[in-house]
Design a binder for these strands. Sequence first.
DNA 1: TGTTATATTAACCATATGGTTAAACCAATC
DNA 2: GATTGGTTTAACCATATGGTTAATATAACA
Lengths: 206, 206
Amino acid sequence: MAEKIVSSRDAILAAARREFAARGYAGARMEAIARRAGINKAMLFYYFSSKEKLYQTILHEVMGEFFTQISGLITPELTPALFMERFPELYIRLCADHPDFVRIVAFDLIHNPDNICAVMAGIISQMTSFQPHPLFELIRRWHGKGLISESDPLHFMMNIVSLSIFSFIGKPMVEAISGIRVASDEDFYRKRVMSVVNVLKRGMLK
Amino acid sequence: MAEKIVSSRDAILAAARREFAARGYAGARMEAIARRAGINKAMLFYYFSSKEKLYQTILHEVMGEFFTQISGLITPELTPALFMERFPELYIRLCADHPDFVRIVAFDLIHNPDNICAVMAGIISQMTSFQPHPLFELIRRWHGKGLISESDPLHFMMNIVSLSIFSFIGKPMVEAISGIRVASDEDFYRKRVMSVVNVLKRGMLK
DNA sequence: TGTTATATTAACCATATGGTTAAACCAATC
DNA sequence: GATTGGTTTAACCATATGGTTAATATAACA
């Protein structure tokens, strides 16, 4: 088993990500993380000096991964139609493949927005391809050219992100309300992407 | 101050709602709730026998309020256009007016979906006007008549709920990414409703 | 006024939890 | 083989926390 050669540090990070995702920051137990990682609890404090530090490390890791992926979408020749196709596709796939990420980010977004927004801003400022200005300038230009109906780039973006991210969080809720259970997750996400892209293009493309 | 005559029980419920919303279940402290309510900690256990019980009581209260409001929308003569106007309007207003509700529900949705979904199902089954079937049957009929483009009622509903609820959770995130800060919340939510209704009607109405 | 049922509190308790320490282990290097 | 520097652990520690208890206050009522 070549997999067993992972460093303790990496084992801790993986275990911590799962634990924080499953129970939230306050609910996560350092001992549980250690157990999951198969090492002594003191190791957590050896590599990361505190629970808070460990959490922030993971938050950075998680957010970095997300933004790196998404920044790949943004090129000068991007059209609104392409953006509305590719963003939901990438985002929904990303969330489905990394459920831990979503849970961690969503929790902080709800209970500690200041911190996570600062982290986001920090990561964004380090990436040349995804500065705040380029994307939102681009959206403004699209509207200027009469390509999209929504004039406010903030609301334009919120519509896209809403439909993409909530596919994940809201699934159990709408299932419970409707009484409809999806057969396979794979199928559900494929259909979700189609529905979202459809609404977005019909709804905001001129 | 006539307000001071609130019963201890009610004071506890109000304080607990705020505390659970602010810190999540695991992060909430019984002593903090007691302090906020201005009473002795033992009172919490006198009226509600445990933290878990107190939490479940609040969850029911919160969800009941939500579903009662929303069920008011659903009448036999409801048209898809009206639904797409009124649902976001009501939902976004409800979330803006009761931020605690959203935080509590969202947290459980992420970390403990089974429990909250059971609660939802329980509440729904007690309400004649908002049974699982009526609404979703109605949506199916709308599509049968060629009034809406989305054939799957689950995705139809998810699109509407996504856009409505995420207006609230995602606001700080999109603000951080865009660098755009909204002037007044009141203004933001008004604009948000308009944008959401617009996308929905253009995107899903035939 | 005495009795009773409900409300309320200060003082406790057992346990869980984040964090520390000092000693041991182990691989590499001299 | 001794030294050194990073790694790992068992045993601790102080404190926070959910929950309990026994005694007291209060209001209703007979």
